[in-house]
Simulated scan of single mutants.
Amino acid sequence: MSNYQTELLDFAAQWAPYGGGDEHVLPTFGLDLAEYYRRLLQLLDSPAARSIDPILVLQLREQCLERLSEPVRTAGSRPQRPSASASRPSSTRAVSRRRVPRRVRGE
C-alpha cells in the first residue's frame, strides 16, 4: 500500500464520524469530491482496507455510494433545493404584485 493510499484511508476514517470532511478533500488531496469518493471506494474494495475496522469499511463504502449518486457538487458546496415556485404547476404560480407608492400627507 502506498503512502497516498494510507493517507486517503486515514483521512476517510478520521472524518467519518463528522460526515466525511468534504470541504477538506480539495486542499488535502487536490481531488474533486467525485474523484475522491471513486478512489476511496476502490481502496475499500482492496486488501488495503483490511487495516480498518470492518464496520467502518461498510459505513465508508455506503457513504461513497451515497455521495457518488448525488448530483455533482464541488468541495464545500451544498446541494441546492428547488425553489417553492418551481414545484408548483404553472397555473398556480403566484402573481407578482406591483408595489404601489404610498400617499404622502397633504395630497
Rank of each mutant, 00 (worst) to 15 (best):
L56P: 03
F29T: 07
A13L: 09
D32M: 05
V100I: 15
R93E: 09
L33F: 10
D10I: 00
A48D: 07
E7C: 00
R102P: 13
Q5T: 01
L9M: 04
R103A: 13
R61I: 05
L31V: 01
W15H: 06
T92Q: 14
P101Y: 02
Q42V: 04
P79Q: 08
E62A: 15
A13D: 04
L44I: 02
P54Q: 09
G30K: 08
Y37S: 12
L60F: 03
P17S: 09
G76L: 15
R105V: 04
A75W: 07
D22P: 09
S46W: 03
S91A: 13
R67F: 07
S87H: 08
G21F: 10
R38K: 14
R105Y: 04
P82V: 14
P27R: 11
R78S: 15
L26K: 15
A49F: 03
V72D: 08
Q42K: 03
L41Y: 05
T28N: 10
Q63V: 05
E7D: 01
A94I: 06
R81S: 13
A16K: 02
R88S: 10
L26C: 11
Q63P: 02
R73E: 03
E62R: 15
A34K: 12
S96T: 09
F11C: 01
V72W: 13
L26G: 14
P54E: 10
L26F: 14
Q63S: 14
L65A: 08
R103I: 08
L44R: 01
Y4D: 02
L8Q: 00
R98T: 04
L65Y: 04
Q14Y: 09
S96M: 08
R105N: 05
D53Q: 05
S96Y: 06
I52V: 15
A49P: 02
E107K: 10
P89V: 08
L60N: 02
S46F: 02
D53E: 12
G76N: 14
L33Q: 10
D32N: 13
Y37L: 12
Y36Q: 06
W15C: 00
T28P: 06
P27A: 11
A34R: 15
F11M: 01
T92N: 07
R61A: 12
R103L: 13
A16E: 12
L9R: 00
R39C: 07
Y4H: 02
T92A: 09
A84S: 10
L31T: 01
P89E: 12
A34N: 11
V100Y: 13
